[in-house]
Amino acid sequence: MELFVQSVISGVLLGGLYAAIGVGLSLVFGIMGLTNIAHGSFMILGSFFVMVFSRQLAGSIVLALAVTLAVMAAVGALTQGALINRVLDKGAEPALLVTFGIAIVVQNILQLIFGADFKSISSPFASVNVVSTKWVVISGEYLVNFLISAALIFILHFIIRKTWLGRSIRAASGNVTAAELMGVNTKRTYIYAMCLALVSGSVGGMLVGQTFGFYSYSGMSYLIIAFGVVVIGGMGSIVGTLIGGVILGVAQLLGAYFFGPGMQIFIGYLTLLVILTLKPRGLLSSMVRK
């Protein structure tokens, strides 16, 4: 029983982190209908940046993250402006393949520079337990992950709902021509959206780097988690990713609880497939779009 409660609590906390991984993917899909295969690789690129910068900046993780976010925003602007914007109106496959190509390039550049070794980013909360009773243990690191992720989701939600940038993004996602008629340069809006996606992905990348570690090719395995989160939460729904993440996290850890740790990932996938079969457009698709 204790272990069951523990699994659920850890699952919820893990789910927060998953949401941070998935939210950028959801955003980009919701806005420009793009399935960004490179999302996971960009996330890991963020992990590497945080790692490198924190070494350079006397171990300050906050400063390192700040620099990383700026750099990743630039990477996003470049990717969208120079590559993806050119193929978006040519159909789904070309855009998807471009992101595929980008993913491969990013992974292999990382491989070239950093090799295939497993890396990690040190966390000040790594060995702190916030709650430690006979019943449950809540690790400081998991809790901080969850809080940062939740904050990230709500900031993004606020930007999309309440700001001029957010409104222009929603306008462009709903009706490109009408948005242009309002004076919104939709191509530029897509650039901003990609920047937001990579910035949020990098936050996820940092948390993943602290909690699980990473290497140059980790992107693809996190991409599928991101897909899972987004599929449950509904493509394009920002708050949905938080719910999707929590469902996936809990499903995985309960899977491990009932069937053994080897089955954690498998049960996660099975849950996704069952949800997709019952609700082919995501669990929350009927409730929200944004």
Binding site: T35, I224, G228, V231, F266, Y269, L273, V274, L276, T277
Partner: peptide
């Protein structure tokens, strides 16, 4: 085909990938 043909578009794309990852883990 029963589960994944219920999904369309990008959901099919993702669903098919998830099936294959599940098989890999299995």
């Amino acid at each position: 085909s029963f589960p994944i043909f219920k999904m369309s578009g990008v959901y099919f794309t993702i669903g098919s990938w998830i099936v294959s990852e599940a098989i890999l883990v299995f």
